[in-house]
Structure formats: C-alpha cells, structure tokens
C-alpha cells in the first residue's frame, strides 16, 4: 500500500515541481493560458470522478455556475470574503447535487436519462442566472468589486500568484482522484457501473456510493468555478454555466482520457490551447474558423480515440513491447 502511494505520488510531485518553475521563465501570456489549463484541468478531473464510473453528468455546468457566482455575489452585496464565499458556494453545489442525485439514484435514472436530466439541470442554472439579471447582470455578466492586490478579497493582478493557486488546486484535484482510485469505493462503483442490480444484491450500498462520488465531484467543480471567477474577475452565464459548458467539460475529459489521472488535464491542454493556437494562427479574419476546426477535431477524436489521448498513448505503450 505504501509503495503504491509513493508510486502514484511520485509523478504528481515531479509534475508540480516542474510546473512550479514556469512563472520564472515565461511571459504573462503563457501564464494566462497555463492558469486556465490548470483550473479547467481541475474541473475536468472533478467530472471524470463520476464519468469513469459511467455516471455521465451533463449538469456540471450548474455546479460550476453556482461556484462561480456565489463568491462574487456575496463579495459585492455583503462584502463577505471569498474565503467564506467559496465554501458557501461549494456547500450550495453539494446541496444541489444531493437534491438531484438522491431521487435520480433512488429511481435508478441511468444512462441517457441521467445525462438528459442533468442536462436540464445545467440549463436551469443558466436561465436562472439570466432571469435574475437585476442581481447577476444577466447575460452581460458581472464583475467582483476590484480592490487590487488583496489576500482578503482573493484578488491578485499579478499572474504568478494565481498560477500558484491554480497549481495547488490542480494538484489537490489529482490527489482526490488518486484517493478515489485507491479507496474501497472504487470496486463498488465499478460493480455498480457494470450491473447495478447485481451490485446491490451482493451488499453494495448503491445509493451511498453514488452519492458520495457525486457530491465529491460537484464540490470540486464548484471550487473550480469559484477560482475561475476569482481569476478572471468576471463571470458570465454562457462561459461558466449551461449546456455548452457542460458539454465542454465532458468533451475535454473524454478527449483527454477519463480513465487516467492526467487524462482530463490533457483534455484541458487540448481544449484551451488548441482553440488559442487556432485563433492566433487563423487571426480574426475568419470568425468561427477556429471553432469549426475544433468541433471537427472533437468529433474525430471521439470516433477514433474513444479512450482519449492519454488512453490512446497508454494502449500504444502497452502494445509496443508485445511487437
């Protein structure tokens, strides 16, 4: 067991150490991209906690939106520090996860139905935010009151600060991933994914296992959302909630490979860096060209690499010695 922990933490520590030097050698622009990749990678990892056990949620846009809006709203209207605002956001997301998860799992809403029920959830979140435009600014979005460099307000105009925060959050997310992977719950969840009825009949508490992983995933997603809004200092319903965001999360996690620890992060690299590269290389002459290529690539990925980038690399590596 101890060896296993070292074997797993080794690569992660190496990655964190390596990435810690990035701010000293690159520009703010690269840092800006890197922060986004880390934060989104964190969110995608959170989603994959559910996804890899066959719980395909298209509702993570809702959890992300709650996290993203809770702390700026509390900060602007009550002056509450994000240090409390973020936990409140997480709590709300967990509550929502329970409200949706409990009846879903009780009534065995699975597969397509689970995906579509949660899809409705993310759209409810989006439309609620838009409808409450007097408070949230509607589809124009809102900005937390800026106070300059402040630990109390969790606002840092200098990029390296947020880079460090993003890196810690990301590493934390991967640790949770390992914990779930090593925990007793994993075998249970795999059995449930295989055959729910059979799992229940051998004494697995299906409800508890599913709820636990759902709540974990929702909480981490909300945390990711709040960090994203703190970093950007701007929230907008279309980029942080709703169906498009939910789909983006699922795409990235699957394109990267949801069965491997670094897979969702690879998905983050793919979904953040690729459109950025396409945007720069194609310029602004062709509005939509970057997204068109991106969309086509997504489809091609899903058809030809159903286990994602990392999954594909792993299967290549596994096949190589055999030849």
């Amino acid at each position: 067991m101890k060896d296993e922990v070292i074997r797993r933490l080794g690569p992660l520590l190496l990655a964190v150490l390596g990435l810690a030097f990035v701010p000293f050698v690159t520009s703010d622009y690269v840092l800006h991209i890197a922060i986004q990749i880390l934060l989104w990678g964190f969110v995608y990892t959170a989603w994959s906690l559910m996804g890899k056990f066959g719980l395909v949620s298209l509702g993570h846009g809702a959890f992300l939106g709650i996290g993203a809006y809770a702390s700026p709203l509390l900060w602007n209207y009550t002056g509450l520090t994000p240090w409390l605002g973020i936990p409140i956001g997480i709590l709300l997301a967990v509550l929502l996860a329970l409200i949706i998860g409990y009846p879903c799992f009780r009534l065995r809403v699975v597969g397509h139905y689970f995906a579509l029920v949660t899809l409705a959830l993310s759209q409810v979140a989006l439309l609620t935010i838009v409808a409450a435009r007097d408070i949230t600014g509607g589809s124009l979005g809102m900005t937390p009151k800026a106070v300059g460099h402040s630990w109390y307000a969790l606002q840092f105009p200098e990029k390296p600060y947020f880079y460090a925060i993003a890196l810690v959050a990301w590493a934390f997310g991967l640790c949770i991933w390992h914990l779930v992977d090593l925990g007793k719950g994993r075998a249970a969840l795999e059995a449930i994914a295989e055959d729910e009825g059979a799992a229940a009949s051998i004494g697995i508490n299906v409800m508890r296992e599913k709820l636990r992983v759902t709540v974990t995933s929702a909480a981490l997603t909300a945390l990711g959302g709040s960090l994203l809004s703190q970093y950007f200092m701007y929230v907008n319903p279309d980029t942080l909630s709703g169906i498009a965001v939910s789909l983006q999360i699922v795409f990235a996690a699957i394109a990267g490979g949801m069965y491997s620890v670094f897979g969702p992060t690879a998905g983050g690299l793919f979904t953040i860096a690729l459109p950025e590269i396409l945007r720069i290389s194609l310029g602004t002459n062709f509005v939509g060209a970057a997204n068109t290529i991106y969309g086509a690539l997504l489809v091609i990925f899903i058809i030809f690499m159903p286990r994602g980038i990392i999954g594909w690399v792993e299967s290549r590596l596994a096949a190589a010695p055999a030849r």
Binding site: L247, F251, G288, N291, T292, Y294, G295, L298, V299, I302
Partner: peptide
C-alpha cells in the same frame, strides 16, 4: 458526444 461535437461544428 460525437453528435454534441457536431453541434459545435455546425454552429461555428
């Protein structure tokens, strides 16, 4: 998801 990718593709 493949058809979801088509959604992005057609929109863009």
């Amino acid at each position: 998801l493949a058809t979801g990718g088509m959604l992005f593709f057609l929109q863009s």
